[in-house]
Design a protein around this nucleic acid. Sequence first.
DNA 1: TTGTACGCGTTATCAT
DNA 2: ATGATAACGCGTACAA
Lengths: 334, 334
Amino acid sequence: MTRNVTIKDIAREAGVSISTVSRILNNAPLVRGEKRQKVLDVIEQMGYEPNASAQGLVRGRSMTVGVLTQDIASPFYSEVSRGIDVGFSGTGYQPIFVNGHWEAQDEASAVAALIRRQVDGLIILGGRLPEQQLHALSERFPLILIGRDVPGLEHCCLRVDDLEGAYLATRHLLDLGHRRIAHLAGIASHKDAMERFEGYRKALSEAGIPFDPELVYEGEFNEPSGILAVERWVSSGIHFSAIFAANDQMAYGARLALYRRGIRVPEDVSLVGYDDLPASRFALPPMTSVHQPLFEMGEIAAQTLLTRLQNNESEMSPVSVTLMVRESTRYHRR
Amino acid sequence: MTRNVTIKDIAREAGVSISTVSRILNNAPLVRGEKRQKVLDVIEQMGYEPNASAQGLVRGRSMTVGVLTQDIASPFYSEVSRGIDVGFSGTGYQPIFVNGHWEAQDEASAVAALIRRQVDGLIILGGRLPEQQLHALSERFPLILIGRDVPGLEHCCLRVDDLEGAYLATRHLLDLGHRRIAHLAGIASHKDAMERFEGYRKALSEAGIPFDPELVYEGEFNEPSGILAVERWVSSGIHFSAIFAANDQMAYGARLALYRRGIRVPEDVSLVGYDDLPASRFALPPMTSVHQPLFEMGEIAAQTLLTRLQNNESEMSPVSVTLMVRESTRYHRR
DNA sequence: TTGTACGCGTTATCAT
DNA sequence: ATGATAACGCGTACAA
């Protein structure tokens, strides 16, 4: 509606040239004290804010970074996003969040939108963009990949050891005496889902327990999948004393289905999730889960990108997973 | 790293002038078919993307809208954000999300950042910006306010009737025969918290039940508050057969505290939440809650802003709340 | 110490 | 049908 105030307006009002105003704004050293104060007053009074587009155009840097997430409303991504947000706050860089919905098509157009907006760097969470495109992107600007593992882009990838996390979870159940451990797997095309599956199998085989495909259900990383899995197992008469879910949301669904069947947790069945979402601390009972430092991962991604934007090399601090043992798991009496 | 491809590059490569390229990009009608194809090929091959900053500068519109939320990771805000995101997808407008953390200071600087980025419109969710500043903002560009009720800006405010929602919830419990209904209130400085409190009192007084301040606990809209409230009530020997929480997160905390005390839901105590977060459908037991159409509110906000950006007047469709009755509430036997 | 003038990439208004 | 050119708001090399 109202036109924005420009440097030219300030200059006219203060009776100086635009370059003087510009210099004051960028606090260059050579400006007379008196005139300086006058101009600052006018800026304050007129409510001037510099035009970032124009600044970006002339400086060649937009001071924005793009963040491609897959689902803005998923508790998983929003924790990471919060870390990214905090990591950039006060740095002058503004993160712009866009959604890819796990569709290479959507992701590509979202990235195109970011490029049009001249982002200086890019953080990508998960997704299905072809590796070739990721390589191309890393040529254009600093790139951070979370939850992907791309050959040749190792220095860009912030990875957590999903196999290790799943191994820890399964091992924990084994140590408690469980032998029939069901696995609520994630979407097969997601790399992390497959690695968690691998970790599960690794722990099993180490313990000398034969793998039973009947105990595996491929879910979609959401609550209804967990319900369906339990329904399937129970109605098929498949026995199990524990469930390891590839993420917390599926575990929540499984928890509800068990409740409906009158199967108690942890008295009858132990339950382990993955992600350790904030809600898991308040689940009934508080749920054992593999903790990924989501918030910290966001912060690390932001900080690493930041140093690379300043043309400094930097290693990416590795992050490790830990098993948060709570009350949804207990000893299995033979 | 690599410089971006510009129109000038395309023009040189295709052997035409920059105005021709620009015309083709904006599909102006008057371009020769042969030359046109040649240019399109070059654009495709060089991977050109228009510079949105430059476009914004000359057009006076940045095609971005600002969204000021308070906490990017809260399930409440992320549902609304998702609606906003969907509402703008495919419109050419790009929403930029920033966080205010419920601090007028942070909010003001976040808004300033958005103004520097030349947003064409603004959506503000909650927050504590002084009404005077909101008025000033509404002078600059189309403004939508969610969860606030500012005198003089009624046409900008997307409100849900919090008093009505709380009334419905409390009334539901009264209809089930409950007489001692505890209220887990929200932060007193939040308008919606106070309205929910009012709705609770209104239902009570209509039913001829005297208000008992002992039954009210002021929480902070998070899970630990719910735990503390129940601890306080139970340890003080205060009797109640139902709890109405001013949001779902506090209800989750209360649920856990009841569980720890061996108090069953709904057999011993009925529990009603507010917000109807996605997780409430999968709570143990699935939780009765006041549903606000968060996603739809985001969509409505986006659509309304969109039409106003095109200088069309538009009323804001009102949204209504509904009580989702699930399994955490049941009849109270006298 | 301060002002003038150019260029960033794009669109739009002129000529041609 | 196409090409030169003036803006848009800002930073900065250069001139004064």
